[in-house]
Computed example of a mutant assay.
Amino acid sequence: MDDNFGFSLTFAGESLAISTYQQNNRTGAVYIYDKSAAGDWQESQKLLASDSAFYKQFGYAIAGKENQIVIGAPNDNENGANAGAAYIFEKGLDGIWMQTKKLVASDVEAYDSFGISVSIATNIAVVGSFYDDDVLDNSGAAYVFDKTSNGNWTEVAKLKATDPKTYSGYAVSVANTEADIIVGAASINSNSTDVGAAYVYKKSTDGSWISAEKLTPEDGIAKDKFGLHVAINENRIVCGISGDDDNGPSTGSVQLFYKSSNEDWIAYEKLLACGTNGMYAAFGNGLKTW
């Protein structure tokens, strides 16, 4: 069986983390690689959930920042079938990565797939719950966790689309900084005709998260899958459009946005890949900003 090694990967400080979420009957694992003095990348550690179990899909989504990694396990069954969970690992002074927290939703329910997407900044983690039913059937949600002064992680917000739809794909992807969160909404249903969207939230002065903007492609058409993957830094947002047809069927593209002086996000460039050899390259099906 294909372990899907490389399905998700991230840098965390000087370490590279690569997931293999289908390993060992979909138990899942994440491998850590560090660069040697000679410049070679060498495996240094294998991460497993503290409550490792078959079909958990640990490593389906991973994200890193400095000496922290958050790892999604959307099929975790502790709180119901496929309710999901996410795990925080931190790198110690000895260079060893240790699990420090298991995150679950405060209103956890079976089949929500909490952990299908994850992101982390220094003191803020975001976890997508693709099939959350709070508003409409499978309309999705994203949970925000703050790191407290004693190193614990506490849920502080639950984000939902301002215009929720059934099976919209909300929270299929998430990304964040300390000040902004972006939540992608792109249906993974092959029969969906949705263009896709991405929702931006900003942190207010009182610490709460408020809806700021909904991003859509400038020339979007049905099945573009805008927002299937998203990335953000302090001044830029990147949205993948893996179903874009500009260079042929589903060759894909990437839309760039910049933050204006009044903190609006403005689309300014669309990137197309060269040498995709025609159809179904799905350019934009994986993103990172620096």
Rank of each mutant, 00 (worst) to 15 (best):
G227T: 00
G243Y: 04
D194Q: 06
K214Q: 11
F226P: 01
L228H: 02
G227S: 02
L228W: 04
S242V: 09
G227K: 02
G220K: 03
D194A: 08
T251M: 06
D224Q: 02
G184W: 03
N189S: 11
D224A: 05
E218R: 09
K203L: 12
I232F: 08
S187K: 05
F226V: 00
N233G: 06
I221D: 14
L215D: 04
V200T: 03
E213F: 13
V238A: 05
S211Y: 09
D206L: 12
T216H: 15
G243N: 07
S187T: 07
G184T: 00
I210R: 13
Y199E: 06
D246Y: 13
Y199Q: 04
N191Q: 07
N176V: 12
E218S: 14
R236W: 07
G227H: 03
S187N: 12
T205C: 05
C239M: 11
R236L: 12
A197D: 07
K202G: 14
A198V: 01
K223I: 12
E234D: 14
R236E: 11
D206N: 13
G240T: 05
N191L: 15
I182R: 00
G196V: 02
K203Y: 13
I210W: 07
A186N: 01
A186S: 11
A222V: 06
D194N: 10
K202D: 14
K223P: 09
I241R: 01
V200K: 06
I241A: 00
D244K: 10
S211Q: 08
I237R: 06
E234Y: 09
E218L: 09
A198D: 01
D245A: 02
S211T: 04
Y201I: 08
G184E: 00
F226E: 03
N247R: 02
P217A: 05
L228Y: 06
E218Y: 08
H229E: 13
Y199T: 04
I182A: 04
K225Y: 09
D246Q: 12
G184D: 01
S187A: 11
S250L: 11
N189H: 11
T216Q: 14
G207M: 10
W209Y: 14
T193W: 08
A212W: 04
A212I: 05
T216I: 15
P217F: 00
D244T: 09
S190R: 15
D246R: 11
Y199W: 12
K203V: 03
K214V: 00
V230C: 04
V200G: 00
N235Y: 10
V183A: 03
N191A: 11
V183I: 14
G248D: 13
S187W: 06
S187M: 08
I210A: 10
N191S: 09
A185W: 02
I181D: 01
S204A: 15
K202N: 14
C239L: 14
N191D: 11
E213T: 15
G248F: 07
G248A: 14
F226D: 00
G184H: 00
Y199S: 08
Y199I: 07
D224V: 00
A186G: 10
H229I: 10
N233M: 08
